[in-house]
Write a protein that binds this DNA or RNA. Structure first.
Length: 659
DNA sequence: CGGGACAACGTTTTT
DNA sequence: CGTTGTCCCG
């Protein structure tokens, strides 16, 4: 018998279009088709809102895999891990399971994985511990106290402000002094101390192998820059790189891309300069404009046909973005010529606004629009409080996304602090937190205890070297036994969690009147733990991608599959709904009063309004209450947002509510 | 030194 | 409103 060997696809002729199982040409418009099939060389895709950006990336992943590229050679960087997963899942549905094995995630999670892989190279003796924002603030607070900077007559900035200053300096690649001068001139007098504290903070993190969000990016870039062998290895691994939401990346992230793409130069970035809404985090939409300079020979593709919204909605969106000082690169159009005119709804006060929204939602529901096709969007998460009450009264189920920080509630942080100690017995901040929960232990005693543990060099067994005073000895013994029994015991993660939960429960009950509710939160945390094998992975995930919605919502999801969505505009990025309400669209709130001083801040707020408006497919309502009293500034607002004021009735219908 | 009581504060957005 | 910082008493 004659044997005939089948060779892999890569050895033969480049396949013709009809050799693919997916009908790319039919499924995509010409611009999308180019964005999907031009695989070699740098590619810049300017993708307007609703222009099929996700679709394009999904098809591109499938195309690459279908070309025979191993999934592990493809890197897809996105803004949230969820969006990466979603795209890969869809690509897998188009083609096959291989697509799920494409490397994907956020810059931060990619940095985390890579740094762990090269930990030895970087000279880290133990694992990397990631500080979320609150952790970073706690470290800063600890050091500030140690340096005696908080007992001065002059007012020293709060830990939150300090953390913001430092982070901004890193992300904008600007010296700390300059950030203070620009954004916090009232703290100029503290510059020297802030710089000293900054140095101390950096040194402390280095010594203890702690990384805040910014460090993950900085270290990754340094790893690539200072180790040509690592850079070569990685840039050879990732033959095809794609970056989503490029308008919201910063200089450091752009550098990382440049270094990763060095070998093959096959890098495709997708973004929309008019949807840049993360400047506060150091993002710079000019990254998009600079891309061709960074990658000579870049081909640029614009996706301008909108498949999401009706023309009347695009008309309003276009009017909004035309008001920008900085002019943008494209104008959206659609084939969906006809539709309902967007409306500007004036309510007497906030309650009336809520009533209008709820009532209109019920009507839409009657008309057959499912609740999960309706969203209420707002600038800041607390703008929806009043509406939430009204929705509850009417039994309208909703899920709220953004704003609420599950991870930052005290009881969650308490439990996690115990787990962090197990992972890293020299974690001073967590020790501090854990020990202060015990009766009769204050800052002083806590410090003595963890110093004694640290100096012993025996990890948790160092607890045995502590001689507790009788006042707090019983409580301390209980803690010591619990921690030592868990240490090195290799129990499943959720078991560790459950044991610590049992330990913590009495403390919880004593500390909080509303402990049943908080206990429920902790139960929920336990269910999250079930998904994890290792403590380290669990902790880094909780820092990098914490649960976004509040617990009530997560629990409710199990029962209700049809829920209204309440979301901050930032969290609504990339999503779409049949009907969108944008509430509290009034001066002082949106744009917020603190943003109106600087042109660039107003511009960002404007882009935010544009993002919000372009989420709508069929119906779009802007609402604002006339009478609002602002607790903070004591001001009374009465004017609609400048972004939607004075738009002709042909484009934006004005409604007034009759009671 | 710990802890409770009280005043002040400042409110974005998120990895 | 909930957090952060301060003050004072036991």
């Amino acid at each position: 018998m004659r044997r005939y060997v089948i060779k892999s696809a890569s050895g033969g002729l480049r396949p013709e279009e009809n050799a693919f199982s997916i009908p790319y040409k039919e499924a995509l418009n010409p611009a999308q088709y180019d964005a999907v099939t031009i695989l070699e060389g740098p590619l810049l895709v300017i993708a307007g809102a609703g222009s099929g950006k996700t679709r394009t990336l999904t098809y591109r992943v499938a195309r690459l895999v279908e070309e025979g590229i191993p999934p592990s050679a493809i890197l897809l960087l996105t803004f949230t891990r969820r969006s990466a997963q979603e795209m890969l899942r869809r690509a897998a549905a188009l083609l096959d399971q291989r697509c799920e094995r494409v490397a994907g995630g956020t810059f931060h999670s990619f940095a985390n994985l890579t740094l762990r892989r090269y930990a030895e190279k970087l000279g880290f003796q133990s694992g990397i511990n990631i500080l979320d924002r609150a952790d970073a603030e706690d470290v800063i607070n600890l050091l500030r106290t140690r340096m005696g900077l908080n007992r001065k007559e002059r007012r020293f900035p709060r830990k939150r402000t300090i953390a913001t200053i430092y982070s901004r300096a890193v992300n904008k690649v600007t010296p700390v002094e300059e950030i203070i001068r620009q954004d916090y001139p009232h703290f100029l007098k503290e510059t020297i101390d802030l710089l000293r504290l900054y140095e101390t903070y950096q040194a402390y993190k280095r010594e203890n192998i702690l990384m805040d969000y910014d460090d993950l990016l900085i270290y990754l870039r340094a790893l690539l820059e200072k180790n040509p062998d690592v850079q070569e290895a990685l840039s050879q691994t990732y033959r095809y790189i794609m970056v989503d939401e490029y308008q919201d990346t910063n200089k450091i992230q752009a550098d990382i891309i440049r270094l990763l793409a060095a070998t093959y130069n096959n890098v495709m970035v997708v973004g929309d300069d008019s949807q840049s809404i993360y400047a506060f985090r150091g993002a710079n939409f000019r990254n998009i404009m600079d891309f061709p300079a960074m990658f000579p020979g870049t081909k640029t593709i614009k996706l301008e046909e909108n498949y999401r919204s009706t023309q009347p909605i695009l008309n309003v969106a276009n009017v909004i973005i035309e008001r920008a000082r900085e002019k943008y690169t494209k104008v959206l159009f659609t084939q969906k010529k006809y539709g309902t005119l967007p409306a500007l709804v004036v309510a007497e006060d906030e309650q009336t606004q809520s009533q209008f929204v709820s009532q209109r939602i019920l009507e839409l529901r009657e008309e057959g629009v499912p609740l999960n096709e309706i969203a209420v969007l707002f600038r800041s998460s607390y703008y929806s409080f009043d509406l939430e009450i009204d929705l509850n009264q009417r039994n309208i189920p909703f899920v709220k996304v953004g704003g609420f920080k599950f991870m930052e509630t005290a009881h969650i942080k308490d439990l996690l602090a115990h787990m962090k100690i197990l992972a890293n017995p020299v974690d001073t901040v967590s020790w501090h937190r854990v020990l202060l929960l015990l009766e009769s232990i204050g800052p002083r005693t806590a410090q003595e205890i963890f110093q004694s543990v640290t100096r012993s060099g025996m990890g948790l067994h160092g607890l045995a070297t502590v001689k507790p005073k009788p006042r707090y000895a019983p409580a301390f013994e209980r803690l010591r036994k619990e921690l030592q029994s868990l240490d090195g015991n290799h129990l499943p993660l959720v078991e560790i969690g459950a044991r610590l939960m049992r330990y913590y429960e009495p403390i919880l009950e004593k500390k909080y009147d509303d402990y049943p509710k908080r206990a429920k939160d902790l139960e929920h945390l336990l269910t999250i733990m079930e998904r994890y094998q290792s403590l380290e992975n669990f902790l880094s995930d909780m820092a990098l991608e914490p649960p976004n919605a509040s617990v009530d919502n997560i629990l409710a999801t199990d029962y209700e599959d049809e829920q209204l969505v309440l979301s901050t505009i930032h969290s609504a990025k990339g999503l779409e709904w049949h009907t969108v309400f944008i509430i509290s669209a009034l001066e002082g709130r949106f744009p917020a009063s603190y943003a109106v001083r600087r042109d660039e801040d107003v511009e960002e707020e404007l882009r935010l309004m544009y993002v919000a408006a372009t989420r709508a497919k069929e119906n779009l309502y802007f609402t604002y209450p006339i009478d609002i009293y602002d607790r903070g500034t004591g001001m009374v607002f009465s004017r609609p947002s400048r972004f939607i004021e004075g738009i002709s009735e042909e484009v934006l219908e004005h409604w007034s509510l009759v009671i």
